[in-house]
Design a protein around this nucleic acid. Structure first.
Length: 477
RNA sequence: UCCCUAGUAGCUCAGUCGGUUAGAGCACAUGACUGUUAAUCAUGGGGUCGCUGGUUCGAGCCCAGCCUGGGGAGCCA
């Protein structure tokens, strides 16, 4: 018996005339003799040709959309038009039946909303298989980029005893009996008796831990799951998502911007090189979906062109103050088209960011120098005393994809910021000690992995780029 | 959490002014055909109109509450 081949290897090597075996899932069974099979190795289907007279009636009925089969035979040039090779089957085995009365995935267009409710089966559609192959390649590209550039990967803890990061609501981790916890002298749950002897949570960011490592290893990055218990119900937020957080000793805010831009472009180039067919499929899909939409909601450029465009452009770099000026001088503002007010000191709203990126510049924008009051306590205070060395990278379509900063490395300044932001020093004494013992300039940023996958695949809902999305009220599968 | 919007067959949707027996395409079943490309053609089965309550002689349609999905906002990555 010949060993099993992946369908992608058959398309690549084209071993015409050889006896091969493939295993996969039936997509369609046409004309009682053509079985279109996908094995996940590629977006493409292999056509299995079987002579009707060689197929007994019982087996014939078991070949349905979704059936798992093994097919052996001679690989040949295809007589049909849709493909260049096909498998002339001389041995067909049903590995797993699929009852068409019950199987919800049909060989037709399904809405993404419907497939979201079938998350266990949606991998079997072209769209999701393409998305998750691309997700894999992007993950690989990220590790590759950092490895090639001298970074060390750091596994930040998933369970943390610190709640000082201020990045959002946290999930409590406890082994206490929720219905009958031990109580302390004030009548509250007594976490001294909990597993860790103190309250603990799922991490909202690995940044603080990454900083500790960077101040010894030089260049590090984390790439792990993070958790936010925010009740945010949008197409861009998850309760569980994956984040990449590089942190580099001796980098200032400008080095940080250079790194982020180079890194982002590297990831896009990697996807363009290694995910070509999947991207072409998703591009085609997007074009078809856009036909149903009003003109103003359609993409102005096809997916691949958009990605290429980003890799070729240098990102626009402006300060927060300049951004406010651009907004104030815009015709959009003068016609009172912004819903929210614009003035120095405000946090930029989605509509402001979208105007800057999509209307004014038409390419990615890095904004730096935000007012200290609207950014986190650990960001380095600039010489003007009122702005911090923060940076946000905004991209068309997604908005903020990266947020980062040069960190406050000055011990006294950081303590002052802690007091200002009501961060208890005793809760992050270990973080403060790095500033006491051989501190140095350093900077880093965070990239939401799913936002990157959205950007590359053109998917518009974050729930469609993570295999099993966790959102408020939904932890099925 | 707030605003908008939707929920009718397995899927995608139509359903007029509140009126008699609930509509289509696809899917599925049966048959025909056999080099097809989401094959084609014919025939057929398939409904708790999201849930609860209300208005009415009569509700898929009107009203109230709730549930679920989608879009937007806030928060953020």
């Amino acid at each position: 018996m010949p060993s099993q081949s992946s369908i992608i290897s058959l398309f690549q090597d084209k071993p015409i005339g050889q006896n091969v075996t493939i295993r996969g899932w039936v997509r369609t069974f046409r004309n009682d003799q053509f079985i279109s099979v996908n094995d996940g190795s590629t977006i493409r289907q292999l056509q299995i040709v079987i002579r009707p007279e060689e197929l007994d009636e019982a087996t014939h009925k078991r070949i349905q959309t979704g059936t798992c089969i093994s097919a052996s035979g001679i690989l040949d040039k295809s007589l049909g038009k849709g493909q260049d090779i096909e498998l002339n089957c001389n041995r067909l085995e049903i590995l797993g039946d699929c009852d068409p009365q019950e199987y919800p995935i049909q060989m037709k267009r399904h809405s993404l909303e419907f497939l979201r409710e079938k998350a266990h089966l949606r991998f079997r559609t072209n769209t999701f298989a393409a998305v998750f192959r691309i997700r894999h390649h992007l993950q690989f590209a990220i590790h590759k980029y950092f490895n090639e550039n001298g970074f060390f990967n750091l596994h930040a803890p998933i369970i943390t005893g610190s709640d000082a990061e201020g990045a959002g609501e946290m999930f409590r981790v406890t082994t206490l009996d929720a219905t009958n916890p031990p109580l302390d002298e004030n009548g509250f749950a007594d976490f001294r008796q909990d597993f860790f002897g103190k309250p603990s949570n799922l991490t909202v960011s690995g940044q603080l831990e990454a900083e500790l490592a960077a101040l010894a290893l030089g260049k590090v990055y984390t790439f792990g799951p993070t958790f936010r218990a925010e009740n945010s119900n949008t197409s861009r937020h998850l309760a569980e998502f994956w984040m990449i957080e590089p942190e580099v000793a001796f980098n200032d805010i400008h080095d940080n911007m250079d790194l982020a831009e180079d890194f982002l472009k590297y990831c896009l180039r990697h996807a363009l090189t290694y995910c070509r067919e999947d991207l072409e499929f998703l591009q085609e899909r997007e074009i078809n979906e856009d036909k149903q939409k009003p003109a103003e909601e359609r993409q102005t450029k096809p997916l691949i062109e958009r990605l290429q465009f980003i890799t070729e452009q240098s990102f626009e770099r402006i300060t927060y103050t300049e951004a406010i000026d651009i907004l104030l001088n815009s015709a959009h503002y003068k016609k009172k088209k912004f819903k929210f007010p614009v003035e120095w000191g405000i946090d930029l709203q989605s509509e402001h960011e979208r105007y800057l990126v999509e209307k004014h510049f038409g390419k990615p924008v890095i904004i730096t120098g935000y007012p200290a009051a609207i950014k986190a306590f650990y960001m380095r205070l600039n010489e003007d005393g009122k702005t911090v060395a923060a940076m946000d990278i905004l991209v068309p379509g997604i908005g903020e994809i990266i947020g980062g900063s040069q960190r406050e490395e000055r011990y006294d300044m950081l303590r002052a910021k802690c007091a200002q932001f009501h961060v208890a020093e005793e809760s992050i004494w270990w973080y403060l000690e790095t500033r006491k013992f051989g501190t140095c300039v350093h900077a880093g940023f965070g990239l939401g992995f799913e936002r990157l996958v959205m950007y590359v695949t053109g998917m518009t809902n974050i729930r469609d780029v993570i295999p099993f999305p966790r959102t408020p009220g939904n932890a099925e599968f």
